[in-house]
């Protein structure tokens, strides 16, 4: 499972859901794997940026021993290489209309910030390990990259 998934996961136990401590789940004894992508999915990063729980992601990166994420989240503009913005204005004018938007995005180059973020969220995977709830301490196992959130009989 890629690390971005942790941005959406909490404890599955209903009584934990209301507690702030149930998010994020804390990775423990994790074996990581980096699956490199050929290109950075810039439109996706831009779209998902406001939905990232930045402080919590920093905690996760820290607990996994990954390079620290900056203390404040990047802005959408930070994700784009500044030099590529001038060409996009021209192309936008030429292709007035809606098809232009896709082309505009295709011509934008991801910045180093975008590449770093892409590496952490969309290329780094948890292969084996545990995810632990900060509220109740329940451990969810990750095996072969698949986390198991099924609850035992007494916790449902």
């Amino acid at each position: 499972m890629k690390l971005l998934t942790l941005n959406f996961l909490t404890c599955a136990i209903k009584t934990c859901k209301t507690s702030p401590a149930s998010f994020p789940l804390h990775p423990r004894d994790c074996e990581l794997e980096v699956v490199e992508s050929e290109s950075v999915n810039l439109p996706f990063l831009k779209n998902i940026l406001p939905r990232l729980m930045w402080d919590e992601l920093r905690v996760i990166a820290d607990e996994l021993g990954l390079p620290a994420l900056p203390s404040t989240p990047p802005t959408r503009d930070d994700l784009v290489e500044p030099s590529s913005s001038s060409t996009t204005t021209i192309s936008h004018a030429q292709n007035a209309g809606n098809a232009a938007e896709g082309q505009q995005q295709a011509e934008e180059k991801p910045s180093q910030t975008a590449r770093d973020l892409h590496r952490v969220l969309l290329e780094t995977c948890i292969k084996e390990g545990k995810l632990v709830c900060g509220n109740c301490g329940h451990e969810y196992k990750v095996m072969e990259g698949v986390a198991n959130f099924l609850l035992p009989g007494h916790l449902v």
Partner: peptide
């Protein structure tokens, strides 16, 4: 399409581990 697949996990919808808008 591997680069667009975040992964799968085992869970039950009635006890989902996903964040829910309270």
């Amino acid at each position: 399409l591997e680069s667009r697949y975040l992964g799968g996990f085992v869970s039950d919808l009635t006890n989902t581990p996903l964040r829910l808008l309270q």
